[in-house]
Write a protein that binds this DNA or RNA. Sequence first.
DNA 1: AGGCCCGTGTAAAGCTTCGGTAAAGAAAAT
DNA 2: ATTTTCTTTACCGAAGCTTTACACGGGCCT
Lengths: 228, 228
Amino acid sequence: MHNRVLLIEDDDELRELLARYLTGQGFSVREAANGRDGLALALGQDCDIAVLDIMLPDINGLEVLRELRGKTHLPVVLLTARGDETDRIVGFEVGADDYIPKPCNPRELVARLQALLRRIAWDHKTEVDASRIYGDLRVEPGQRRIFQNDQPLDLTATEYEVLQVLLSRAGSVVRKTDLMQWALGRRLEAHDRTLDMHISNLRKKLGNDDPPRIETVRGLGYSYRVPV
Amino acid sequence: MHNRVLLIEDDDELRELLARYLTGQGFSVREAANGRDGLALALGQDCDIAVLDIMLPDINGLEVLRELRGKTHLPVVLLTARGDETDRIVGFEVGADDYIPKPCNPRELVARLQALLRRIAWDHKTEVDASRIYGDLRVEPGQRRIFQNDQPLDLTATEYEVLQVLLSRAGSVVRKTDLMQWALGRRLEAHDRTLDMHISNLRKKLGNDDPPRIETVRGLGYSYRVPV
DNA sequence: AGGCCCGTGTAAAGCTTCGGTAAAGAAAAT
DNA sequence: ATTTTCTTTACCGAAGCTTTACACGGGCCT
């Protein structure tokens, strides 16, 4: 639940289909349409697992993977054309953790992502557990705690999720419907004020600064003000 | 290198073919032609990874896997009939790490085995049998005992498992469902309070300190407070 | 400008789910 | 058979999620 997937796939239609499906399954998805962007995002520490198409317009997927492996152990699932055995084998050799042939079944993709994440959880301590810092806040995913100037904030489970999502996208606007899906795991229905309440409570716990750390973007959602 | 693979497959021809190929690739192979033998070998601690056919003459492969998961985290690659999607998804849910459709390409099998082993090698650093110390507690896996200030705690088998899992992840939150699976060897069903009871008893035996050594993370699980 | 609608902030109340633990029953070990 | 351990049942209190209600304010229309 609440894992962050990076989707590197140039086919817009497929990418958006998968993104929608993964989001519906509780993943927080970020997307890249080419190798360069994908690589940048993957190195940005803001995802737990990557799905990487081999056929990309700029850099070859395998090259992206090789590049990535020089710097991180981020788990990677390759998307390959069905039957292209060579790519597969090379992919594994370069350090992929899994591959799925295209056209792929989304349910299977989810199952594989979860199997991989579970295996990592068992074996312990990878990037998934690494702490992330945003200004005076520090997120400790292992403890599921967030510290402000090294003082743990007393957050409820939901508040932790909401804030963690906002932080992982610090500086950009998170739409309410997405925030709902990622942090609460369900659809935003009309007249549902739940999210507003959690935001309100979070602001209180973060200290009601001016300007507020969590900015309201009317009609859209919220955004954590990027720390200097 | 020289990893030990357990091959559980009833088709003699296929099994021997794979065995020969894997051996040629530098694996040390042991074989089982049915679920019962396979299970016994898998629990014998003498292998690093297992390849498990779903269709077996005696016990269903998924059943073998479920049984196995109660006791060990041994990585398992499932062999399934091509296209049988249900088996796959169920397989992942029961805790498989990967699957390959039959008829399978041996090169791909090797690639997948190696990807899995590599992932584990990265993540896995701790030795299994060494005693570990957490503050005033000392875990002796050999004796299956835990000492507090060099006094052995009088724990039951289950309590030992629960505490040992919590300790091995000290400082991180362990989800109830995982704790159940790892320590009790079965799935957490709704309204099952067994785990809560063991925690309650453990707290009593550890001395009901304040703040408690075993913290409750509401809605998620428990976490052993990391000693200073 | 005035009025209206809609989205938002937040206090307070309602309600559900979750967790602690005692006690009883079932199962396993001795 | 007896003891130990594990599981189930039941009850309670508390945590925290959601709903309700009302207030505020911006944007838009006339």
